Amino acid sequence: MFRALEYLGPVGLGATSPQLFRAETAGGERKVCVVKLSANRLGYKVLVNELLAARFGQWLTLCFPAGGIIEIPAEVMKKSRRLTAAGVKPGLHFGCEYLSRAGYVNKYNLHRATNKEQMAGVMLFDHLFHNPDRTINRKNLLIRRERDGYKLYAIDNSHLFRRGKWTIGMLRELTDTITINHRRSYGVLLKYYLHSAQFLQYAKKVTEIPRELFSQFVQDIPREWLPEQEERQALLEYITARSDKAYWVAEKLSELIPDINRRSNIH
């Protein structure tokens, strides 16, 4: 949970018009956060998607920037003419840590990353929860030089379940399907770097998440973001059913690895 302290301005990119805020964590640490506001043009479900991704990312140790609910107090909102004019209301929004000095991933810098194995988890997550946007939008994979080398980060989970504005019917249609995405960076990772064992390792992590925790994930969604109980129940059923398919998805991804020695762990 973050608490906004100061509005810094627009990020300048993205369909959801993300904004920058200086914020404080529950532990008192100050950070700059990228915030998706409840007033974004895709609606509240974008925030639902982001919050669910943040929860899964924490449990699976994915390379997502730290994120969660951010409270924007009325006194912070009132100081910004831009936000006031846009009709943004104080309350609960979604925020994640801003990654300064990061660049976009491409075929020329991907090899530098020291945490490429984490992308097996990101790819598994994207295929479990139908997020095609990671490679359609080339700006959703970042690389940043840090003390221990270059590190990859996967950002923007607003398009889970194929799009921000999902419905109960869409969730049910997606429960038993898979659409393999091996474009751009994903194709390079499969061709040169990732191993079947890495996909299976993350599949194991998914199956080891206590299933009662999924209920907590859904309960933690602010009521104003998802007021309909029927939608909450459908979402719970969907993430539970999809998580039970983790090994199936891992094997489908592993079959795309051209090097037989790196996909020899398929059962």
Score class of each variant (00 low, 15 high):
Glu173Met: 09
Leu62Tyr: 02
Met1Ile: 13
Leu226Gly: 00
Thr167Val: 02
Gly103Val: 15
Pro73Asp: 06
Thr114Ala: 15
Thr25Tyr: 03
Gly164Leu: 01
Asn109Ile: 14
Arg145Lys: 10
Pro227Arg: 11
Thr179Leu: 12
Asn115Ala: 10
Ala120Tyr: 01
Leu200Gln: 12
Lys116Val: 10
Leu171His: 01
Ala102Leu: 10
Ala197Trp: 06
Arg184Met: 11
Ser158Gln: 13
Glu230Ala: 10
Val249Tyr: 01
Ile70Trp: 02
Thr61Asn: 15
Asn40Ala: 05
Lys89Asp: 04
Glu251Thr: 15
Val206Pro: 08
Arg112Ser: 14
Ala197Lys: 11
Leu110Tyr: 07
Trp166Ser: 03
His130Val: 00
Leu8Glu: 02
Pro73Val: 04
Trp225Glu: 11
Thr84Glu: 12
Pro10Leu: 01
Lys78Met: 09
Leu160Lys: 06
Ile257Gln: 06
Ala197Tyr: 01
Lys78Thr: 12
His93Tyr: 03
Tyr104Pro: 07
Asn181Ser: 14
Pro258Thr: 01
Lys191Asp: 06
Asn265Asp: 13
Phe2Pro: 04
Trp59Met: 15
Leu47Val: 01
Ser38Ala: 12
Arg41Trp: 12
Arg30Tyr: 08
Asp126Lys: 12
Glu231Ala: 08
Gly14Asn: 01
Val76Ser: 05
Trp225Thr: 09
Leu99Gly: 03
Lys252Glu: 15
Val35Asp: 05
Phe2Asp: 01
Lys89Ser: 11
His130Asn: 14
Gly87Arg: 02
Gln216Asp: 14
Glu50Trp: 04
Arg232Gly: 08
Thr61Pro: 00
Gln229Ala: 03
Ser264Cys: 08
Leu99Ile: 07
Leu160Gln: 05
Phe199Met: 10
Asn140Cys: 07
Cys33Asp: 03
Gln118Pro: 00
Gly121Ile: 08
Leu256Ala: 09
His267Gly: 00
Ala85Thr: 04
Thr114Lys: 15
Asn265Trp: 09
Gly67Val: 06
Gln233Tyr: 14
Ala86Asn: 07
Leu190Ile: 08
Thr135Leu: 10
Asp259Ala: 01
His267Thr: 08
Phe214Lys: 03
Thr61His: 15
Ala15Glu: 10
Asn40Phe: 07
Gly68Asp: 06
Arg172Phe: 11
Asp156Phe: 05
Ala15Cys: 00
Ser215Thr: 15
Leu171Ser: 04
Pro90Met: 01
Arg138Trp: 09
Ile69Trp: 02
Leu20Glu: 01
Ser196Met: 03
Gly121Asp: 03
Gly169Thr: 07
Ser185Met: 14
Met1Leu: 11
Arg22Met: 08
Ala74Leu: 05
Leu160His: 10
Thr179Asp: 13
Val35Gln: 05
Lys45Trp: 08
Leu256Lys: 12
Lys31Gln: 11
Ala15Gly: 13
Val122Ile: 15
Gly67Leu: 09
Arg211Glu: 15
Ala4Thr: 00
Leu92Gly: 07
Pro258Met: 05
Arg41Glu: 13
Gly87Phe: 05
Thr177Leu: 09
Gln198Phe: 02
Ala86Tyr: 06
Leu128Tyr: 07
Lys245Leu: 15
Arg242Asp: 12
Arg144Cys: 10
Lys107Trp: 04
Ala66Arg: 06
Tyr153Val: 00
Ala102Thr: 10
Thr167Trp: 07
Asp133Ile: 02
Leu160Ile: 11
Leu128Asn: 12
Asn265Gln: 05
Pro65Gln: 03
Glu71Phe: 00
